[in-house]
Each structure stands twice: as C-alpha cells, then as structure tokens.
C-alpha cells in the first residue's frame, strides 16, 4: 500500500472531520483533528492501515492550549504522518491510547508528568522519569514553570 492509497483511505473515512491537512513536503504530513476523534483515528491508523506509532510530543503553546502530536509511519514508506490534537490547558484530559498500542504507554506517562495532562483510562500512571517524590503540580514543560 503506497501513501496515496493511505491518504485516500484516511480522507474517505475522516475527510470531513479533519480540521486541517498540511503537507510540509511530500514526506511530512500533518493533520489536525478534534480531540474526541483521536482514539478512533489511531485505531484506524494502527489497525487497517498497518501504521507504526513513533512517538507523541506535547507542546505548551502561548495560546493556552497544549498541542499533542502523535507521529506515525507506515513501515517501509518514507512518509511521517503526524496527528495534532489540542487540549485545553484548564482541563487537560485526553483519553488514553495505552490500550490501542503498548508503545503508547510510556510516552503518556512521560507527557503526564512533564506537561500535566491526564490520560483517562491509563493502566499505570506512576512517574516514569521523574523521582517519585517530585512535587505534585510541578510540570517542567509547562510554560509557566
């Protein structure tokens, strides 16, 4: 399955709901999606489209929202497909994807402790890299810290 096919399938399924589709160049594609769609989208990418989860990265923007980018690729293809969701900083809750792929488990723990985002339904929300006695509410990656 080549990238154009994948792109077509994604657009067929979620075409209307995608907020923004940006191609930085032919290998780097970004798509903004609404938060509730996230789990279904990722399940579609990892399941039928046989994608591979690379990493997620969170950015605390000055606009008062935290962007989370989920990066995927499709094994032998050069394209990197990044899903962007916006999380309200006042109510930072995201549905956990740990059940979708094991590989997402750690990074959600990491984003949780560094950006203070709550992943609902995550099996193990302990600290990953910070010490266990790290002060509550201190999220190093937040802009206000």
């Amino acid at each position: 399955m080549k990238w154009p096919d994948i792109e077509k399938k994604i657009k067929e399924k979620f075409g209307k709901q995608i907020l923004k589709w940006a191609e930085h160049n032919e290998r780097r594609i970004y798509a903004d999606i609404p938060l509730p769609l996230l789990k279904e989208f990722v399940q579609f990418l990892l399941g039928p489209l046989k994608g591979r989860f690379i990493i997620a990265s969170g950015v605390d923007t000055p606009r008062g929202v935290i962007e989370i980018l989920y990066h995927f690729d499709f094994y032998q293809l050069p394209q990197v497909f990044s899903l962007r969701v916006m999380v309200d900083k006042k109510n930072p809750k995201v549905e956990s994807l740990a059940g979708v792929s094991k590989a997402i488990e750690w990074i959600e723990r990491e984003i949780h402790e560094l950006l203070g985002i709550e992943f609902t339904g995550h099996p193990d929300m302990r600290h990953l890299i910070l010490p266990d006695d790290w002060p509550e509410g201190n999220y190093p990656l937040r802009r206000d810290q």
């Binding site: 591979r52 690379i54 032998q76």
Partner: peptide, 25 residues
C-alpha cells in the same frame, strides 16, 4: 515487535524490515 513498535536491530531480528536509511533516505 510490531505491538511494541520496536525499531532497529531489535525489530530487524524479529522479521520487521525497517531501516530509515532505506525507507526514508
């Protein structure tokens, strides 16, 4: 290997043929 999305020699020893040098030169 695919479930944990492993990469590199760890993946290639498990029959997952990924290598950025070839896939995304």
């Amino acid at each position: 290997a695919k479930a944990y999305c492993v990469v590199g020699p760890t993946a290639r020893a498990s029959n997952v043929a990924i290598d950025v040098r070839r896939d995304d030169p």
